[in-house]
């Protein structure tokens, strides 16, 4: 990578030199504060559950992660739809950024789900309907990201990715439905993860978890979007440079 050779636009007075801006700076500080509050309430102030003991504390990060993985998936589908409709690069990159962050949160959900499963079920993995759907969501998102990583023209890649991204939502619905039927045909859901009575400080901790992790999600999507935007600019720039060089060669020879 060309990390050492500073580009021609370094330390410019005009425009930011990173993906940060005033808004994201403030957002980042608020996010950190919210995460601090989450740690305080989730790990220290909230009580242990009667049945699950301290394992219930995993819920405060697991449930928001799961919710946001689906939110990210929806954002990808919306971005893909608007891209196909208006051919707007902005929306295409929204789809890309949310898909990558959604994949990250899906991974969090799977790992925390397994770490929650061990103390409560005795094993890391059971073929629970929700956990299985989440694993399928991960695979679907990996497919989408594989299309994003194709070495092809921007137009070709974006168009194909948009089709795959748009289909994420119906796929997720059908997968969830089929997995649910599949599991409930032979047995009832093994354990309802979210305890039956969440109240008081536990409810507040879960709420804090939603707020803090949603803020972090938004921050990450914004920054990832800007990185994707810069990448496209660099690609376009690189193409311009290459064409200019080729022209210069043509003139010289």
């Amino acid at each position: 990578m060309t990390t050492e050779t500073a580009g021609p636009f370094e330390a410019s007075e005009r425009g930011p030199t990173s993906t940060g801006s005033r808004t994201t700076m403030i957002l980042g500080i608020v996010t950190l504060l919210a995460l601090g509050v989450l740690v305080l309430f989730g790990l220290i102030l909230s009580p242990a559950d009667e049945n699950q003991g301290d394992a219930v504390r995993i819920m405060y990060v697991h449930v928001p992660s799961a919710t946001l993985s689906y939110v990210g998936c929806f954002m990808t589908a919306i971005g893909s739809a608007v891209y196909l409709w208006r051919k707007s690069q902005w929306w295409d990159l929204v789809a890309y950024a949310s898909a990558e962050v959604a994949a990250l949160f899906t991974a969090f959900t799977l790992v925390t789900g397994m770490l929650w499963g061990r103390p409560t079920w005795g094993v890391f993995w059971v073929w629970d309907a929700r956990l299985t759907s989440e694993a399928m969501l991960m695979l679907l998102l990996l497919g989408y990201l594989a299309v994003r990583g194709l070495a092809a023209d921007y137009q070709v890649r974006a168009k194909r990715a948009a089709i795959v991204g748009l289909l994420l939502v119906p796929n997720v619905f059908i997968v969830r439905q089929s997995v649910q039927w599949w599991r409930t045909l032979h047995q009832k859901p093994t354990l309802t993860l979210a305890g039956a009575h969440i109240q008081g400080l536990m409810l507040f901790s879960l709420f804090t978890g939603f707020v803090a992790i949603t803020l972090a999600f938004v921050w990450m999507v914004i920054h990832r979007f800007r990185v994707a935007w810069l990448e496209e600019q660099v690609d376009a720039e690189g193409l311009d440079v290459a064409i200019a060089e080729r022209r210069a060669e043509g003139v010289a020879s």
């Binding site: 990578m1 030199t17 993906t19 989730g42 992660s65 991974a107 969090f108 770490l115 920054h223 660099v234």
Partner: peptide, 27 residues
């Protein structure tokens, strides 16, 4: 579980910011 989520978000944020800084110099 908490380490994975908080650490994962931290690492991802850091990687993204670093990538953004590097790319900014070329745009």
């Amino acid at each position: 579980a908490w380490a994975v989520v908080l650490g994962g978000m931290g690492i991802y944020a850091l990687v993204t910011v670093v990538r953004g800084r590097r790319l900014s110099k070329r745009v």
